[in-house]
């Protein structure tokens, strides 16, 4: 699903990413870890074409993102869901309207919007709170609305950039569980985080970045049992 070949991103003389090679398969869930400034957010931005690589190729599905024209960016982004650290919810719209907002812009029919939004909110466990404003929801609930918005179009790829950066450990775990369940349904999920504690307990493929380079890429382990310890 995601292929990076010798990707470098340079800002002036500073290399934010240096010769990155990655291959993330369809339906796989991978965690991107690293300290602040390691290049996680830059990599995420390259994936949804907020930035262009200085060199190298990025392929998502069958789209060559690195050479994609500006006019075609919307087509790429419709094939992925993006989750943000700061949730990016519209404060004057209900949870339902926040999720429905993009679908309206994409010209979906009303009955389809109702069906899809209800389905997404149900999946994230917020159907009962559909008509609450973001200010009436907890941080974890707001992030679940953000996830519902990311998956409402049924994209084959979900990218989450530090989705638990503003949340407490227990809520963070809930969000990771939710993203994991989404991956189990066949969606490729890439999550960036600096929460090493959760990463170690989670047992998913973990790619570690340091100073713009991949320093380790460890496959999934079976230590999911650590969840219970974390909860305690």
């Amino acid at each position: 699903m995601i292929k990076l070949k010798n990707v470098t991103k340079q800002y002036g003389k500073i290399k934010a990413l240096d010769d990155i090679n990655l291959d993330i398969k369809s339906g796989e869930m991978a965690l991107l870890v690293g300290s602040s400034g390691a290049g996680k957010s830059t990599l995420m931005k390259l994936l949804y074409r907020e930035e262009r690589p200085s060199s190298g190729n990025i392929i998502i599905g069958n789209i060559d993102v690195s050479s994609l024209s500006d006019a075609k960016i919307p087509y790429l982004r419709r094939r992925m869901g993006i989750v943000f650290q700061d949730f990016k919810l519209l404060p004057n719209k209900s949870a339902f309207e926040n999720v429905a907002y993009a679908l309206r812009g994409l010209g979906a029919e009303e009955y389809e919007i109702q069906k899809r939004v209800s389905g997404a909110l149900k999946l994230v466990g917020l159907l009962e709170r559909a008509f609450n404003l973001p200010s009436e929801l907890s941080g974890g609930e707001q992030q679940r609305v953000g996830i519902a918005r990311a998956i409402v179009q049924g994209p084959p790829l979900v990218i989450a950039d530090e989705p638990t950066g503003n949340l407490d450990p227990a809520t963070s775990l809930e969000i990771f569980n939710l993203l994991s369940r989404i991956a189990e349904r066949g969606t490729t999920v890439l999550v960036s985080t600096h929460n090493q504690h959760i990463v170690e307990s989670f047992g998913k493929r973990t790619i570690t970045l340091d100073k713009g380079q991949v320093v380790s890429d460890i496959g999934p382990t079976t230590n999911n049992h650590n969840f219970a310890q974390l909860r305690r």
Partner: peptide, 14 residues
């Protein structure tokens, strides 16, 4: 600006 950013990121046409 927030609405615009969200619409851009979800792939709504220009």
């Amino acid at each position: 600006s927030l609405e615009i950013e969200i619409l851009r990121l979800v792939g709504v046409d220009d």
